[in-house]
């Protein structure tokens, strides 16, 4: 996932400049015509594999299941989309998920961005340790993280005992938020770090040479330049938080998030409303991502004189 952070958000200096930009044109890796075609077909199939379940999710949001389980296609209906919130438990759980995701994303984005700025801008002792510390949670299996957090919340060891007011001595909304901030933090720190790495810090010097105070420099020069990276990180952690199941399962107490509700109810009922809500989430996140990409493309286009 570190690589996801690195690759999903290309650094500011773009290598693609000067390369052949037209789609499908082979960039001289020289391969037979046939082999090259086959490779393209294979890549297309791989993308189809990635999108198969998505297609099914969207399609089955229009299904009218015969029984309680929305597994087999019966007939087309718009009912589910007209009544997306018909299942009240499902909708309540969805709202809880959104609340958790908002709080966790805000806190994780702030903390993670601060870490990234410190790592990229400053040279200090303990640099390597901090780098290790932010990568470690990503390599820890979720089940380990979840169960260790559960033991913490059940029986806080000495140094943490005095903090247990923070979760009111019971598991629920607060413990879920604490856990989600924890795993989002690393993603944010790594994503922002990857984006900020190519940043030209001499711009700050230039601003200050022109008489801007540090705070003003940060607000007018630094922040606008790093905001896209921070926004991408925030979006990523929002998606992660909304999606988390395993860790939440351990720390949730009686609280129910969207995935927990789906899992809990799946033995008795799999309603098409699940698909409707999932499709909505997908549309919103794709929309946000598309808007970001479009904005970047426009800016790049404006920058390069044609």
């Amino acid at each position: 996932m570190t690589a996801l952070a690195d690759a999903g958000t290309p650094p500011i200096d773009d290598r693609s400049v000067g390369r052949d930009q037209s789609f499908g044109s082979e960039v001289s890796t020289g391969m037979g015509r046939l082999g090259s075609r086959l490779l393209n077909v294979f890549a297309g199939l791989a993308l189809a594999y990635l999108f198969a379940p998505i297609f099914v999710i969207v399609l089955f949001s229009f299904n009218k299941p015969a029984g309680k389980f929305n597994y087999v296609w019966q007939e087309f209906t718009l009912d589910n989309w007209l009544h997306p919130f018909a299942k009240s438990e499902l909708f309540d759980a969805f709202v809880v998920s959104l609340q958790v995701a908002v709080v966790a994303t805000i806190v994780a984005t702030i903390f993670g961005t601060l870490i990234a700025l410190a790592l990229v801008r400053y040279r200090f002792t303990g640099n390597g340790l901090v780098n290790l510390l932010i990568v470690l949670p990503l390599t820890t299996p979720e089940i380990v993280m979840g169960s260790s957090l559960l033991t913490l919340f059940l029986n806080p060891p000495q140094p943490l005992d005095s903090f247990s007011w923070a979760w009111n001595d019971e598991r629920g909304f607060r413990t879920i938020v604490i856990a989600h901030i924890l795993f989002c933090l690393s993603f944010v720190a790594l994503t922002v770090k990857a984006r900020v790495r190519g940043f030209d810090w001499s711009l700050e010097d230039a601003a200050m040479d022109l008489g801007a105070r540090p705070m003003r420099t940060f607000r007018k020069v630094t922040l606008p330049l790093i905001v896209p990276g921070i926004a991408a990180a925030g979006l990523l952690s929002f998606a992660l938080s909304l999606d988390d199941f395993i860790i939440t399962l351990f720390v949730r107490g009686d609280e129910k998030t969207f995935p927990i509700q789906i899992f809990g109810a799946s033995r008795v009922e799999v309603s098409p409303q699940i698909n409707v809500l999932a499709t909505m989430v997908l549309l919103v996140s794709v929309g946000l991502m598309g808007a970001g990409t479009l904005r970047k493309a426009r800016r790049d286009a404006a920058r390069t004189p044609s």
Partner: peptide, 17 residues
């Protein structure tokens, strides 16, 4: 982006699919 998009839907919902 297309490679990542499917992962913006919930893990459980994907599994159901």
């Amino acid at each position: 982006g297309l490679v990542v998009v499917p992962f913006f839907t919930s893990y459980l919902v994907r599994t159901l699919a």
